[in-house]
Design a protein around this nucleic acid. Sequence first.
DNA 1: TTGCGTGCAAAGGTTTTGCATGGCA
DNA 2: TGCCATGCAAAACCTTTGCACGCAA
Lengths: 131, 131
Amino acid sequence: MGYNTVQGKRIISFLKGSAGEHLTADEIFRRLADGGTAVGKATVYRWLDKLVMRGMVRQFSGEKNESACYQYTGGLKCDNHYHLKCFVCGRLLHVDCVYLDKVAEHILDIHGFVLNEEKTTLYGICADCKK
Amino acid sequence: MGYNTVQGKRIISFLKGSAGEHLTADEIFRRLADGGTAVGKATVYRWLDKLVMRGMVRQFSGEKNESACYQYTGGLKCDNHYHLKCFVCGRLLHVDCVYLDKVAEHILDIHGFVLNEEKTTLYGICADCKK
DNA sequence: TTGCGTGCAAAGGTTTTGCATGGCA
DNA sequence: TGCCATGCAAAACCTTTGCACGCAA
């Protein structure tokens, strides 16, 4: 599980405090630069990777030459649960849907591909922003 | 509309000849290096941008530090097309599938969300790596 | 004491841009 | 002739990595 470092505690604490927000690695880096022990940018990236692995944080890759952004979710079980990310407002929508469950089944049966719902995010424009 | 240059003609001609294939900018660059007037990489990027704008080419952005890939469509509204990315071998599978087309429809009808297939990648484990 | 975690800077990848040159009209 | 398009190399961008040092256990 690793050592219990000041930097790790600051990063996790900061992320928890901004649960729901979508932040870039650089934003996190800058926000941690003030007050307390500063945290190196490489360390921010290393922790984000680790937290993504653990399922505590979701990562959304940006366009080329744009930062990826990260959102703290706290590792809530997201079974049968899909994520729709809106380009416009940036919100992450959590969707439970029987129909979508069948999609994973189809992809497995026909394409032989085991879909990982947790790691997959569907991108588009949400109902509110569509108007 | 711009000048009618040898390089532009070669790029468009090559793309038309590989309609349906998914090519990276670098692949296009390398394929054009042999035979006829070579085309600079910057020019390849400039033409791809231009053709994406015109709707002649679709762009699929890859992960960070991976090339985007491009597909010539000739401006036709082509079939919805999904990307399955395998964690294990890293391959990107391109899937045309009628069933998956209906998924986008469902997401729109029921969840009010306009899915962007170009920007969406489904993650999991491919048939080969599953064994 | 052991060895993981960190910070810095450099490297790594793709894509964009500045600027002088060459080719189209 | 006028000016856009091109090519080269450098820059830009985010992210990863190498290495020495410091700190947790």
